[in-house]
Structures are given as structure tokens and as C-alpha cells.
Amino acid sequence: MAVAHQHHETPKAGTPPPFWTIARRDSLAGFLFIAPQLIGIITFVLVPLGLVFWYSLHEWNVLANTFTFTGSQNYRMVLEDTNLLEVLGATTIFSVGLVVLNLSLALLLAVLLNQKLAGIAVFRALFFSPVVVSLVAWTIVWGFLLQKNGGINGMLLMVGIEGPNWLREDVTAMISVIVVQVFKNVGLNMILFLAALQGVPKELYEAARIDGAPAFKQFRRITLPLISPTILLTSIITIVGSLQVFAQIAVLTQGGPGLSTTVLVYYLYQQAFQFDYFGYGSTLSILLFVIVAVLTFAQWQMRKRIVFYEN
């Protein structure tokens, strides 16, 4: 490098440009700054992702300690696994129910909290408080409340209603796990929506009032379009999050009754770690990955059509 430069016009002071130019030093700094994260991602995400695909092509018998290449056999099993069909159905109901309920409740709460009312900060903190309550503690107390002779049925009985055995019947078990999860985390989306609502310029509402638009129309034509980027973002986070829900199922229903609340992550866990089917468990992991990737990609594509406004 230095030699090549000497053939050019040499600067007056005769100093060849140093190898460590400003740009080179900055590049080095950049690499050093990202190195821990990059190495971490390779070690704990990309290599495992490669491995999970490799495992999915094998039959892995833990007891006999055999690891045989079987090609697409696990994938054929996915297609033939009738339980899996039920699992995917439960996953869909769980995720759709969770997202719809979570986003609409979050939006409602955000609109309420956006009103000029005294003591609104206290309400905001209380609605948010389950987010900071330990997840399993929250789930345990709900499990306790939802027992056949638990607090909820006790209160229902006081007004003369005999409640179901919430966690032991198909439909109510699913409703229960959804609702418990919604109340736990809706505070996060609520705060994001609230911030978005407060980001809508006041002048727009004033202009709309001068134009004579009634409140509900202001909400539909001004508020919703302007907070649509937040709606999209929260829906992506919530959907991907719903596919990761595990503790609640494990504590409340263990996937039951039957398979009615066995979502994909729980099924994966059972197959891999309870039944030691690591090969098939890995195939289910790939399925989970594909679902997450497709959903994220689809929502990203919808950005252009649904999001009316972005800065």
C-alpha cells in the first residue's frame, strides 16, 4: 500500500498515508462493536437453526442412542399426524383470539386513558400492573380462580349462576388461556397505543370539528389511519408473541382437555422433551419457524395497503 503510493505525487512533507486511515479505523471499531452480538447470533441462533434442520432429517432414538438419516420421513409424519391438525387448529384459535381481543381491548383502554380526567395516571398504572407481575404467579392465581370451586364460580354462585369447570372443558379452557394471557400483557400494547394517540396533532381534531365531523367519525377517519403504523407493529409483536406462549398452557391446562389447548410450542415441547422424539420435535420447530416467518413477511407486505400514513 505505502509502496504503491510513492509512485504518485508525494506530498510536500513526504509522509506516506498511514495504513490505518480514519475510515479503516472506524471500520475496525464498527466490527469490534458488533462482534459480541454477531458471534452470539451465529452461535445461539444461526447454528442451532441449521442444526434443527439437520435433526429434522433424522430419526433420533435417545434410549438406543441412534441417529439415523431418514430424509423427509419426519416431514411426511407432519402431514400424517392427525394430532398435529388439532394442534394447529388450537394454535390458530388461540393466536387469532388473543390478537383480536388484545388489540381491541388495548385500543379501548388507550382511548379511555387519553381522556382529560383527574387521576388518570393511577388508572394507567393499574391497567399496566399485570405486566410486571411474575408470569407464572399470575397464571397460578388465575388457575386458582378458575377451579371448579374457585373464586370466580364462587362469585357467580352468589348471583345464582353455576359456573363451568373452566379449565376442564374444551371451549372454556381455550377461552380461559386466552383471557389470562390478554389481561397479563394488554398493558404493553395499551401504552404503545396511548403514545400513538398522543402523537396525533391536536390541530387535526380541531380542523375536523370545524368541518363538522362527529366524534366517532373523527376516530375512524383521523385517529385510526394516523395510528395504523402502531397497530401494525403491535399486531406483529402480538402474533409472534402468541406463538411463543408456553408457561400459561403448561400451568393452566397442560394442553388439555384432550388436545384442545395444545398449541404448537407446547406440542413441540412434549414431543421433544417429554417423549424424547428429538427428530420429530425438530421438524415441528421448523414448522414453527416457517409460520413465524410467513406471518411476519405477510404483515410487512400489508404495510403498504393498511398503513395509511408513515413519517
Binding site: 506530498p11 510536500k12 512533507a13 509522509t15 498511514p18 475510515a23
Partner: peptide, 22 residues
């Protein structure tokens, strides 16, 4: 100032070529 790199030519401050200095 040295906040942008110099593509060509020389910059001399107080008798020193400073093109590649921070």
C-alpha cells in the same frame, strides 16, 4: 476539520500535511 475524508489533493495546516489525520 477532518470530518470528511479528502478524495484528492493536499491539505496543509501550519506546515503539516493533515489529509489522513484525525
Amino acid at each position: 476539520a477532518g470530518l470528511e475524508t479528502i478524495t484528492g489533493g493536499t491539505l496543509d495546516i501550519g506546515g503539516r500535511i493533515v489529509n489522513d489525520l484525525d
